[in-house]
Structures are given as C-alpha cells and as structure tokens.
Amino acid sequence: MTPDAIEEQIARTATGDRAAFGVLYSATSAKLFGVALRVLNDRSEAEEVLQEVYVKVWHNADRYRANGLSPMTWLITIARNSAIDRLRKRREGQAGLDAAEAVADAAPGPEALVVQGSEREKLVGCFAELEEGRAAAVRRAYLQGESYAELAAAFDVPLNTMRTWLRRSLLKLKECLTR
C-alpha cells in the first residue's frame, strides 16, 4: 500500500470507519508485529503490544496529521515506543515515550515536511561515518531501549563519556543526513 493510501485509511479511521481500520491493520500489522518482535524477542508480549498499538492508532488517528510524521513512520514509531515501554517495565527509571506521536495541536513544522524516504537510505551510510561503536550505541538505544547508564556499562565507559559520545554522534549523524 502506498503512503498516500495508508494516509487515506488513517483519515477514514479517524472518522470512525471500522472497515478502513481493518484495511489499515491488514496493510501494516505485519511490519509493526515484526518491529515489536524484534524489540521484545517474545511472541506473546509482541502480540500484546501489537494490540495496544492498534488501540492507540484507533484513538489517535485524528491526531495523525498534527505530528508531521509520514504514515509508516508514525505507525512504526508507535509500535517501537510501545515495545520499548514494555521492555522497560522489566527495567526502571526511564520516561514513557507515548506523548510525542500523540501531540494534538498545530500543523507540522517546516523541516518535517521536506523529509523524504531517501533520507532513510542515507542512514546506513551516515552510521558508517561515525566512530566505531557509536552507531551501535544509537542502534541499541533505538532498538533495545537502553539508557545512557546501560550504554555506559555495555561499552565500559563513564556515564558522562557515553553521553558526550552519543550527543556528538547525533550531531554528526544529522550533519551527514542533511548534507
């Protein structure tokens, strides 16, 4: 299904169209389930998260346009955040990640509007430009929900060093991605 077609189903879902919701589920659930499985590595937990995700989608479909994300990014981000939140229930001390994709008011900002799919293809190349280990830290934060403290322990560096590394890496990454 094309991004436009997915957007169409989200828009219809926002009006309470159950059939559109079903079509949206059919078109997107396999990707979102794959993401939840990857993060959680547990089938029953991933199924539980997938249910939570689509309940959120149903209730927040009317806010989709306000957040400035492309439709699959919106859906995958909800799935990733929900899965990470569940993963962190086994851990502690991190904030929930639910709020940003549900922000209700105002139009998307100018930068979001020009983001295109081609940016994604650049990501791999830009990761490769980072110093060794830095890209892995970003990946672990995104796909395993690791905190600065957990990353510092995993890479065996002081917490502040990890924080500095990662922030610099984000700047380099963005510089490369917008080049």
Binding site: G68, L69, A112, E121
Partner: peptide, 16 residues
C-alpha cells in the same frame, strides 16, 4: 521543536 523531533523520528525509523 516538533519538526526537529519529527525529522529524527523519520531518520531513526530507517533502523527498522
């Protein structure tokens, strides 16, 4: 700020 967040969300989703 929403635009900055949205841009990162688009970038990071590439990891999936």
């Amino acid at each position: 700020l929403r635009a900055l967040y949205a841009a990162w969300a688009e970038d990071f989703v590439g990891m999936t």
